[in-house]
């Protein structure tokens, strides 16, 4: 049925997957590679819970055919979690209780990760703008914004650490 082999770099590691035409990056990551931190809230681009980074930029894995990322760098929450302990941004979410049910959390952290890479000291307005596509139904967002602010203050982004 016209399956193709697609190769891309996932969390620094080259992966090769056989994909059917137009299989989304979300389905490949979740169901072929077991990267289930990539969540599946709507598959319509409406909730942000499947946000991953492609070449460092946040995109929605549910709207992206896996073939389109051939040869590119893909980063998921699994990729940024250290072997021991937590990434400072993850720690900030934990400290601020930037979650309740946890379903939106991977997407929130991935967008925040990209934001802090681009802009290590974002204003509150910039944080709100970056998170605008990520839906949380539990928290009312305040602890999530507080987590990103906390991470920025703690210098969670590599750019900030270099200062």
């Amino acid at each position: 049925m016209g399956s193709k082999i697609v190769t891309f770099v996932l969390g620094g590691r080259e992966v090769e997957v056989m994909v059917k035409p137009m299989t989304t990056l979300q389905a490949v990551l979740r169901y072929q590679l077991g990267y289930t931190a990539v969540k599946e809230g709507c598959r319509q681009g409406g909730c942000g819970s499947c946000t991953v980074l492609v070449e460092g930029e946040p995109v929605l894995a549910c709207l992206l055919p896996a073939e389109d990322v051939a040869g590119q760098q893909v980063t998921t929450l699994e990729s940024i979690t250290p072997v021991d302990g937590l990434d400072p941004l993850q720690q900030a979410f934990l400290d601020a209780s930037g979650f309740q049910c946890g379903y939106c959390t991977p997407g929130m952290i991935m967008v925040s990760k990209a934001l802090l890479e681009h802009n290590p000291r974002p204003t509150r307005e910039e944080i709100l703008d970056a998170l605008a596509g990520n839906i949380c139904r539990c928290t009312g967002y305040e602890p999530i914004v507080a987590a990103v602010e906390g991470a920025a203050q703690a210098g969670a982004a590599p750019g900030a650490q270099r200062r």
Partner: peptide
């Protein structure tokens, strides 16, 4: 009190229903 599911949530390791295969 730290939440018992907190680490799972921030690492994405919490296993939701359709995360199982």
């Amino acid at each position: 009190v730290p939440r018992s599911d907190g680490i799972g949530h921030v690492t994405g390791r919490t296993q939701f229903t359709t995360d199982r295969s």
